[in-house]
Design a protein around this nucleic acid. Sequence first.
DNA 1: CCTATTCTGGACGAGACGGTCAAGAATCGG
DNA 2: CCGATTCTTGACCGTCTCGTCCAGAATAGG
Lengths: 196, 196
Amino acid sequence: MGRSRSFDEGQVLAAAKDQFWSTGYAAARVDDIAAATGLGKGSLYGAFGDKHQLFLRIFDDYCAGLIEAVRRELDGPDAGAYDRLRAHVLKVANATASDVCLRGCLLAKGTAELSGQDEAVAATARRTFAAIEELISSCIAGAQRAGDIKQDADPARLAGLLLAVLRGIEALGKGGSSPDSLRAIAETALALLPRP
Amino acid sequence: MGRSRSFDEGQVLAAAKDQFWSTGYAAARVDDIAAATGLGKGSLYGAFGDKHQLFLRIFDDYCAGLIEAVRRELDGPDAGAYDRLRAHVLKVANATASDVCLRGCLLAKGTAELSGQDEAVAATARRTFAAIEELISSCIAGAQRAGDIKQDADPARLAGLLLAVLRGIEALGKGGSSPDSLRAIAETALALLPRP
DNA sequence: CCTATTCTGGACGAGACGGTCAAGAATCGG
DNA sequence: CCGATTCTTGACCGTCTCGTCCAGAATAGG
């Protein structure tokens, strides 16, 4: 019983995410978030708690979505594993390259700004990095079984390196590196993978 | 003529840098900076301008120092170029790994927070990344002349990749990756460099 | 239709923040 | 020693910001 909500939670979270994403956590104003979502502050606080809780919710959702997106791109039969890995790495480079407004990845931005002071953010970042690394590692193992990557390579170590390259591309992209150089990095990394 | 300054500019900038570094730009309070430096706010504003100018000064100095530090580690005769490169990559990994408070690199933190909205920060970041990449590239070229890296490799592309790996290690470190995994990434990257 | 309950919107308050200013202290040239 | 000049301090101002609160609107059950 009682009045029912007049807003769509997903839309509100998306609009709030945009605010945090473009300005960072500290510089995002609750009034701006309210204006962007079209909600009054009372509704915002009633539905999501304070600014910090709202950010955590958005950050967690974003990371979960990121992991799912990577899983969709990398999971699959051994036969196409190498191609999927290759496509994924190039896709990240292209996405970063075409991110004109330099917002980069919310995971990277949030981690950079808050992980030193906010254990919840740090923990989510750790879990997300670990999950993505594991997905890459599985994909590499699949590519090894399919004979597209040398058998004697350690998939975990290669996955760690590739993850670092991906995060590095993202970091350089935020610095404004040229699209071509970002793509070159991705291609160079792929070219150095030990193939049979 | 007139009263002379009673503070050391370098010490003040260092203390202010610590504040920006641990909290980020937006969350750093001018009062805290004044307290940390021991200066009254009037002196701070008189000597360095407003908060934004102060940050830009610190950010620029930091980036210039970073470039110089990398130059000192990488410059030298061709004979030891590969070893210097190797030592540098491992040093970055170790430094990141032992950064307990997860502050990371001020360049990365400042770029993540501000480059999308502050062209001056973005420009400094671009220049710094380009300078470091150039230093790595020269070092690789030296290692090639010394016969420690395959002649047919493109030093610029390898340098771009290594820079991305370094920035990625830095990003993962801020997420709290274990010291061992960071070192493993550095070693894996070095192991994949094409050697004769 | 009525009432209990929930949601909405925005005015409000308390405090924090960036930046200024004036009054006094220190220093230098003469 | 003195005046001109620069530096220092921290109180102060206007503004901004988070979070609360309340009066009213909407809804579900009876």
